[in-house]
């Protein structure tokens, strides 16, 4: 049984069909990439996996470790091992990064039947995770994402991922707005977490990130459907030829 199994997924937003029959299967130990033009439904797919309100599944299912994921609340999905790195990380004024991370980690630990970390244990743990990402104490003390630069926000997403150690990480346009140095830090962070026991789904518009996070499979999403799947070379082909071939096929 695959770790993530999406079958014939149809989703509408305000009665408008966005996803029109997605099939996708990801095994543990794999990295998949979904590439596609703007408006293809990439963000909808990441949000529907994470459980955001406002999307209606009209057909199909999402199975996570064999369980019906659409039945779970967003926090239940996270406790089951799902993580979404947001394209636009949300600012939470008045909540420090440390408090946020600690509350999140302890929620997950509780869900796994493990004891909660106290403030000292947590600080030691989080500092170890933060150091390779270039995140210091000062950034840990600031309110979540408030006043962060674009690069800081993305590094902060990867820090959360490192702290929460998900089984399946979905990275939604994590490369957008990053310069090449920041991109490398983020990619190194993601690669460091790769293991035979987890999987990653990278959603991106550009091939660039996939130079650093090398995928096992690449899928092209256009107009709500996966129109082509292949190995990592497919990303290079898309970079060379663009998405027009898929859009025009749709139009024809």
């Amino acid at each position: 049984m695959a770790l993530l199994e999406i079958r014939n997924l149809h989703v509408t937003v305000e009665d408008k069909p966005i996803l029109k029959g997605i099939d996708l299967s990801i095994d543990k130990g794999e990295v998949h990439a979904i590439m596609g033009p703007n408006g293809a439904g990439k963000s909808t797919l990441s949000y529907i996996i994470a459980g955001r309100d406002g999307y209606e599944v009209t057909d199909g299912q999402i199975l996570f470790d064999g369980k019906d994921m659409l039945e779970l609340e967003p926090d239940e999905r996270a406790r089951a091992g799902l993580f979404l790195a947001f394209q636009y990380p949300v600012e939470i004024p008045g909540v420090t990064n440390t408090t946020f991370l600690k509350t999140a980690l302890n929620s997950l630990r509780k869900g796994r039947g493990e004891g909660e970390l106290d403030a000292m244990q947590f600080l030691k743990f989080v500092r170890e995770k933060a150091r390779p990402l270039g995140i210091g104490d000062e950034m840990l003390k600031r309110a979540v994402n408030v006043g962060y630069s674009g690069g800081e926000k993305k590094r902060n997403e990867i820090l959360q991922m490192a702290v929460l150690e998900p089984v399946l990480a979905v990275l939604d346009e994590t490369d957008s707005g990053l310069d090449i140095d920041a991109l490398k830090i983020v990619a190194d962070g993601v690669n460091a977490l790769r293991s035979p026991d987890n999987a990653t789904l990278v959603i991106t518009h550009y091939q660039r990130l996939l130079d650093y996070i090398v995928p096992d499979r690449v899928h092209v999403l256009a107009d709500g459907r996966i129109v082509k799947s292949g190995g990592k070379d497919l990303a290079l082909e898309l970079e060379a030829k663009g998405y027009a071939q898929f859009s025009s096929a749709e139009a024809a």
């Binding site: 967003p74 926090d75 999905r77 799902l82 939470i92 999140a104 929620s107 869900g111």
Partner: peptide, 8 residues
């Protein structure tokens, strides 16, 4: 939603 996706 953001907080909840972190398991809270």
């Amino acid at each position: 939603f953001y907080l909840r996706t972190r398991g809270i």
